[in-house]
Amino acid sequence: MVEEIKKVIKGEILEKSPQRIIIKVKNDSFSSTLNALKGLSFKRLTLFTAVDFVKDNQFELVALVYSNENKILAIVKTRIPKENPEIETITNIYPNAFKYEVELGEMFGIKVIGNPDSMKPFLLEGWEDLPPLRKDFDSIKYATEHYEARNVEVKYD
């Protein structure tokens, strides 16, 4: 299977275990890679998410695609810069990516071109702060500032 993938996809391909393949590609060939993988029986998008690498000032987009026939999970990764992050939609390849993309917009502030609901609220209502899953957003600080805590004296005997 890895050989077949290597024929079609240009990028760093690593076989981590018999059932996991990690594929790192450039961000402009992200959707074409997924398209090629779909042709190679990777028909199910299991998860589409992002990781905030704050040290590199980059987002890593991660798409997990699964092949029911070969029972292999491919982890497709790409890096995009953190300033004005934009990606192209993959809903034309995997229709269930729609809400994952909306979530990317809400949780990371990544704009998805071609997704009509991108940057619209999905889980949060009236959110005005930074996108919450970014590493520079401090949840503890936000919670202490916005929600009053109960003042209880705890005594340990």
């Binding site: 919450p132 936000y142 919670a143 929600y147 009053e148």
Partner: peptide, 19 residues
């Protein structure tokens, strides 16, 4: 509902219902 419980540090959950 009393003091936020395990979600005391969550940005989406209020800590005290009686407010």
């Amino acid at each position: 509902t009393i003091n936020g419980g395990i979600y005391w540090d969550s940005y989406a959950v209020v800590k005290r219902l009686d407010l």
